[in-house]
Amino acid sequence: MFIKDELIYDFSINMPRILVGGKTGILDNVKKIVLISGNNVVVSCGRKYISVSGRDLIVRQLSEERMFISGDIDNIEFFGSRE
């Protein structure tokens, strides 16, 4: 990765960013929660949206624009207008 790309990645505060591993997902730049249930979590990251669907989803922590989700994650989707 070039430095320019890395900087864009680091400073893209209104873009969705998600890190998933095993039964854990960490969503960054969370600005607003659009929909939340045991099977689906949709959050707004400013310009775009992230949808995490699965089973027995629990929000372990929600603070400082970061959401920590645990459960069986089946699907991750990104929504939003094309730029």
């Binding site: 969370v30 929660i33 939340i36 045991g38 372990r60 929600l62 603070s63 624009e65």
Partner: peptide, 27 residues
């Protein structure tokens, strides 16, 4: 609309843990 309350908490800087949703009306 529990998501509205959660969004407000996020905005106001209230940290929350172990959010479990039961149906549409309870968490």
């Amino acid at each position: 609309d529990p998501q509205k309350l959660l969004s407000l908490c996020l905005k106001e800087g209230v940290a929350l843990w172990n959010i479990r949703i039961y149906g549409n009306l309870e968490m």
